[in-house]
Simulated assay, not measured.
Amino acid sequence: MAVKDRDRFSTTTRIRLLGEQTAARVYRSQTKRQARRSRLTGRAALLALVLCTLIVALAYPIRQYVAQRAEIAEVQRKQERTRERVEQLRDLKARWQDDAYAEQQIRQRLHYVMPGETGFVVIDPNAAKQSRNDLGAADRPWYANVWDGVDSSDASDQ
């Protein structure tokens, strides 16, 4: 036993025992860390799966909601433009109810004259050709459009 006791107190034996104890502690701490890490990984995977499921489940309804809000905004803008147009047309209708405005428009658009007045139309041949090309049918007097129609139909017969 004396050899064993001496062996037990020897530096080599103590260092070997210390190394084994340290190795055991390190091994235990590594297994605990790995166990904790594996639990966190499982929790993280579950959390990621739940989040992905929520995103996929909510993506379509959110997209529909945003699209419908944009559509509602567009319809409201269109409704506002329509209201403005209705107001413009009401104003125009009220103006046409006034005889002075109607007479002014008839004189301007149809080149009518009142009894006792003499109407003149001055034609510059160069200006007439240029104005026919520059102005659209809506901007020229009505009789110019009629005469152009007669000229074009006469030219197609020849």
Rank of each mutant, 00 (worst) to 15 (best):
R109K: 11
A155I: 03
L47I: 10
V122Q: 15
A102G: 04
A48L: 11
Y60D: 14
M1G: 12
Q30K: 07
Q130G: 12
A44P: 01
V26A: 08
R63Y: 14
A70I: 05
A67R: 09
A45C: 04
L92E: 07
W96E: 05
G119P: 01
G136T: 15
D139I: 01
A44T: 06
T82W: 00
F9L: 13
A73Y: 02
Q130I: 15
T13D: 11
V150M: 07
A45I: 04
T41A: 07
Q97S: 06
A67T: 09
I106C: 06
V122W: 09
R39E: 08
T41P: 01
E71S: 11
L54T: 14
I123T: 14
T53D: 14
Q34N: 04
W147N: 02
I106H: 06
D148I: 05
S131K: 05
R132M: 15
R36W: 00
D148K: 03
N126E: 15
E87F: 00
R28Q: 08
A2I: 11
T118N: 13
L135Q: 13
A44N: 09
A137E: 15
A73V: 05
L51F: 07
L40D: 04
G149L: 03
T41D: 06
R132D: 12
Y65W: 14
S152R: 09
C52V: 10
Q130S: 15
D139S: 13
Q34R: 03
D99F: 04
Y27F: 04
A59H: 10
C52D: 13
R14K: 15
A127H: 11
V3E: 09
M1L: 12
E117L: 10
R140K: 12
Y27I: 01
K129F: 13
L18Y: 01
N133F: 14
K4G: 08
A73C: 03
E80K: 04
V50D: 12
P125V: 09
Q34F: 00
D134Y: 13
I55K: 14
Q76W: 00
N145G: 02
G116Y: 01
I15Q: 13
T11E: 15
R25Q: 08
D98R: 07
Q68A: 14
S153K: 06
R132F: 13
A144C: 05
R6H: 11
V150L: 08
A48Q: 10
P141S: 09
Q68T: 13
A137N: 12
K129C: 14
I72K: 09
G119H: 00
K129P: 01
L40M: 06
D5R: 12
G42K: 08
A102N: 05
A44S: 07
D148Q: 09
Q79L: 03
V150A: 05
R14S: 11
E71R: 10
K93M: 05
G19T: 11
P125S: 14
G42F: 03
Q158R: 04
W142H: 08
R63M: 12
T82S: 04
T22M: 06
R25C: 02
A59W: 05
A35M: 02
T11H: 12
I15S: 11
L92Y: 02
